[in-house]
Design a protein around this nucleic acid. Structure first.
Length: 618
RNA sequence: GCUGCCGUAGCUCAGUGGUAGAGCACUCCCUUGGUAAGGGAGAGGUCGAAAGUUCAAUCCUUUCCGGCAGCACCA
């Protein structure tokens, strides 16, 4: 049941006036209970199968539940069916869930006797004054804040254990590793089936799989976390960069700073102190050179940009000075963090640093905000967007006063951003800022509801001072500029991966590496097909031919699997009348059109959204 | 980095303590076929690396490298 909208046990006493609702299994709110109950039953199953296993915590999560166990020998996926079978037995017994409130000492004593040391720790962690609730299901019991349904039988059979994985006790890598078992449960079997089906669909759009199928990129052992871009993938990459360059035109000046810089420069910036663990360094490899200098491979572009800013005297008249670079940075990411294009050790940032005065700062942040929003829309992200303000972390440089000031301005800007557009949600991330300043993080939502952090705007009062960068103010004094670090896509590699998954490989024409393939039904049409290719290229389209001696079915299948958006099929008829048969990816059937008209339409369709917009204005 | 699992042909995967197999892809031949796999032949692997156990290791053990899932991390 629910009291004043809050879930409670059916057996709970009602101590004051409250709005009472009885929640059936079918109620969406019951899902949480079903999953939580299932977690408890799983814990009982595990302990009855392997006595001596300690239970720790087992919460409900977004799509299911997990329970963390401590056992000398971790579980394997082969144990899952065994546990599931036991769970079905426990559910069939249909024992009631009953609650008791225990005194703290009693609880500690019982758990200590059972050898449940983790539970003892949990008891200690419960704030004094809060009740210690113990839930029983038959002979088995567990410390739990509840609530639960009335009996184990209510869980039903629509559940599935999914995977086992390691997880640290209390999420701290210094603590012992536990074994976590993930599962999910639903009220009805068809809901479970639908969820499992959705997981399969998500797997199909995994960018690593699409990268192979579309011949975009690969990885190999010698370069862990670094991308080999194939021609197709690099075409998309360059198309995205070209888009960003067009968007920067006028406002920004693009630069390029060195890949290797002396270690001393990174000591000045603070990177060598804080983030050396994540940096690569380089030295002359020749044994004869006797050059001992140590260089760091840049993990960020900002120190380089500051050097460019510092080169020569800057006037307040030059501000805001917006310096952009599509810089390649290297970061030594932990091996377990690497994941396709999403987390790599070398990547390209669409980076920029805005050097400005304090007064200009808020306006610059809003201007960047605008650039980010329009860019995401152009790349087809039309769902919700969250802007998070991350505040001072523990590892940081600069005075508290400077942080107070910067965070104050950022809070204000955040308010304005929230009011500017109703698609935007805002949030605060305490302690998540960069070591040199607070930041905004832009989180976009893709076509299947996953969130990705891409863009970021970071205000920095510290680095310019560390490097003694200044400008001459109107009154003739030297002043350090405020520096705003910003990226729109963030990592281009990652952004491309997100795009691929968002579109499930079905890229819009302007981004597709091969926009069309011209293919023949009979070899008599080869000459005409070659002419179609030549004309299409003249119209600015990325087109390939496929004159292989294969059946049209075979060729259609192959190019469809490679996600080519448009197939231009020509046979005897088309060759005779200067026509093309157009087949679109993912659609059945085709449209026969005169060649000229078809190319004109495709050329029009392949215009990038920003250029299209400009044309409409003109 | 941690825990678990995995590493066999370009891809997907089978298999064995006595030195390897399938499908697709590739090459050649036949086929000219109207919108998601036409037929045949051929070529292709020091079974991730090193050490150990053994008469014998792709298979068992150890270490290392890489991948996958989760955790931790993500300036």
């Amino acid at each position: 049941m629910a009291l004043d909208g809050k879930l409670a046990d059916l057996a709970d006493p009602i101590e004051k006036d409250a709005r009472i609702e009885f929640i059936s299994r079918e109620d969406p709110r019951a899902l949480e209970l079903i999953r939580h109950d299932a977690a408890h039953v799983m814990a009982e199953a595990v302990q009855s199968l392997w006595p001596g296993t300690q239970v720790t915590i087992g919460p409900v999560i977004e799509n299911g539940f997990f329970y963390d166990f401590y056992r000398n020998q971790p579980f394997t996926s082969e144990d899952l069916p065994v546990i599931e079978k036991k769970m079905r037995e426990i559910i069939a017994r249909d024992k009631p869930f009953t609650k008791e409130v225990w005194p703290r000492d009693e609880a500690k004593r019982v758990f200590k006797e059972k050898g449940e040391t983790f539970k003892v720790e949990l008891v200690d962690a419960i704030p004094p004054g809060e009740q210690l609730k113990i839930y029983h299901q038959g002979d088995w019991f567990d410390l739990c804040r509840g609530p639960h349904m009335t009996s184990t039988g209510k869980i039903g059979n629509a559940f599935r254990l999914q995977k086992v994985a390691g997880a640290y006790w209390r999420g701290d890598s210094n603590n012992p590793m536990l074994t976590r078992i993930y599962g999910t449960a639903f009220a009805k079997q068809d809901e479970l089936d639908a969820y499992l089906h959705q997981l399969e669909e998500a797997e199909k759009r995994d960018h690593r799989k699409l990268g192979r199928e579309m011949d975009l990129f690969h990885f190999q052992e010698e370069g862990p976390g670094t991308v080999f871009w194939h021609a197709n993938g690099w075409t998309i990459f360059q198309e995205i960069v070209a888009y960003m360059r067009r968007r920067l035109k006028g406002d920004y000046r693009e630069v390029n700073a060195p890949q290797l810089l002396d270690k001393s420069l990174w000591e000045t910036s603070g990177h060598w102190g804080w983030f050396r663990e994540n940096m690569f360094m380089a030295q002359s490899a020749g044994e004869e050179t006797e050059d001992p200098r140590i260089f760091a491979i840049k993990p960020m572009n900002c120190p380089g940009h500051i050097q460019i800013f510092k080169h020569g005297l800057r006037s307040y008249r030059e501000l805001p000075l917006r310096m952009a670079e599509f810089g390649v940075v290297h970061r030594y990411e932990p091996s377990g963090a690497l994941h396709g294009l999403m987390r790599v050790r070398a990547f390209t940032q669409d980076d920029a640093h805005v050097f400005c005065t304090e007064e200009q700062m808020a306006e610059e942040c809003l201007k960047i905000n605008d650039l980010i929003l329009t860019t995401y829309a152009d790349f087809g992200f039309e769902g919700d967007l969250t802007v998070k303000l991350s505040t001072r972390p523990e590892k940081r440089v600069g005075s508290d006063a400077a942080w107070d000031h910067a965070e104050g301005i950022m809070h204000n800007v955040l308010k304005q951003i929230a009011q500017s557009n109703n698609r935007i949600k805002t949030a605060i991330n305490p302690g998540e800022g960069a070591f040199y300043g607070p930041k905004f993080e832009y989180v976009l939502r893709d076509a299947i509801g996953r969130d990705w952090q891409c863009g970021t705007t970071q205000v920095d009062f510290n680095l310019p001072e560390r490097f003694e960068a200044f400008y001459i103010a109107a009154d003739g004094s030297k002043k350090p500029p405020v520096m705003i670090h910003r990226a729109i896509c963030g990592s281009m590699e990652r952004f491309l991966g997100i795009l691929l998954e968002n579109y499930a490989g079905h890229l819009p024409l302007w981004l597709a590496p091969v926009q069309a393939v011209v293919t023949t039904i009979v070899s008599e049409a080869d000459d005409y097909a070659r002419e179609v290719v030549a004309q299409a290229r003249r119209a600015g389209l990325r087109v390939e031919d496929d004159l292989r001696n294969e059946k049209i079915n075979y060729k259609v299948r192959e190019h469809s699997l490679a996600k080519v958006p448009v197939l231009l099929v020509v046979g005897k008829k088309e060759a005779a009348e200067r026509l093309v048969s157009i087949r679109r990816l993912g659609k059945e059937g085709q449209q026969v059109m005169p060649l000229d008209a078809a190319l004109k339409a495709l050329a029009e369709e392949s215009v990038p959204p920003d250029l299209r917009r400009m044309r409409q204005v003109a």
